[in-house]
């Protein structure tokens, strides 16, 4: 059985009296891509910043590679790559200077991997950091986070600012690293994004871990949000079929969550005069409201 790369036990952080995270306990196994999801302000970044020793826990403990994160942060960092949500570097540096400076902290020679990543990310290393767009800064961040071939990659909302094509390339890169044995902790508030690559997810809400679940189990619960605009008056019980919940009616618009047989739904729809129809992935709020809160 794979060993734990990250262990957290009752990890708690208060900022004065304000809640950061409360009693976070879970482990991440070697080789996993662990999705850490929750709405903004739920405590994802606090958890990550505590693991990285940027902030100090109020109580509880955490280890990475079996080492206490508060006692051996520099030792741990040798094999961790961190790609933050917001990127800030030394504005006066050129990209290549920043990457060289970053490489100078590691014992490994990372020149070769750096060159490969620069190619994959199509980045001009002769530009000044201050002249880069958000997307290009993100690329710099990805390269500096991966060039020393870390055993653990920590991603905090990593795709913001990347166009869809680059996002895909980034996910491919992460999957490729993962195949080589790299463990990934991936935090995001976008469920869809986490669904793409994670093997297991932890859901955090208001500072507490409310659920740990295999991605497969979560997929089985894939509800869709259905929005129907119709000129036919719809009876309240018309869509009362297996797999529907959370009915909302506003004027001639009806919305509900649906997880049943899609053919059953289309049959029902065919008898209505539909003006507009939208079937989409529910947002995280919907998931929390209807999958988890009611279950607990």
């Amino acid at each position: 059985m794979a060993s734990n790369i990250i262990e957290m036990k009752n990890l708690t952080k208060y900022y004065g009296k304000a809640r950061g995270i409360i009693d976070i306990t879970f482990n991440i196994k070697e080789g996993e891509i662990f999705g850490f999801i929750g709405p903004n302000g739920a405590g994802k970044s606090t958890t990550i910043r505590t693991l990285l020793n940027l902030i100090h826990p109020t109580s509880g403990e955490s280890t990475i590679f079996g080492l206490d994160t508060t006692k051996y942060p520099a030792k741990i960092a040798e094999e961790v790559g961190y790609i933050p949500s917001e990127i800030f570097y030394y504005d006066n540096m050129k990209v290549k200077e920043l990457l060289k400076y970053s490489a100078s902290f590691y014992k490994k020679d990372s020149k070769k991997r750096m060159a490969e990543l620069v190619d994959i990310m199509e980045l001009d290393v002769n530009r000044k950091i201050r002249d880069l767009s958000l997307g290009n800064k993100k690329k710099v961040s990805i390269i500096q986070g991966l060039m020393h071939e870390p055993r653990l990659v920590i991603l905090d909302e990593p795709t913001s600012g990347l166009d869809p094509l680059m996002q895909q390339r980034f996910f491919d890169l992460i999957m490729e690293e993962n195949k080589k044995g790299t463990t990934v902790l991936f935090s995001s508030h976008i469920l869809n994004e986490v669904q793409k690559i994670s093997t297991r997810v932890g859901i955090v809400k208001e500072g507490k871990l409310i659920k740990l679940e295999d991605m497969n189990t979560l997929r089985e619960k894939t509800y869709k949000r259905v929005l129907i605009e119709s000129s036919t008056p719809i009876d309240d019980n018309y869509f009362n079929i297996k797999g529907t919940k959370d009915f909302k009616t506003v004027d001639d618009k009806l919305s509900f969550l649906y997880s049943g047989d899609i053919n059953l739904l289309t049959n029902k729809l065919s008898t209505l005069k539909v003006h507009d129809l939208l079937i989409e992935d529910p947002d995280l709020e919907d998931i929390f409201m209807h999958y988890y809160v009611r279950e607990e």
Binding site: L52, N53, L54, A74, K75, A77, E78, V80, Y82, P84, F88, Y89, S102, F105, Y106, K107, Q144
Partner: peptide, 8 residues
């Protein structure tokens, strides 16, 4: 954040 997540 950059500096303090390096092995130093």
């Amino acid at each position: 954040d950059f500096l303090m997540t390096k092995p130093v």
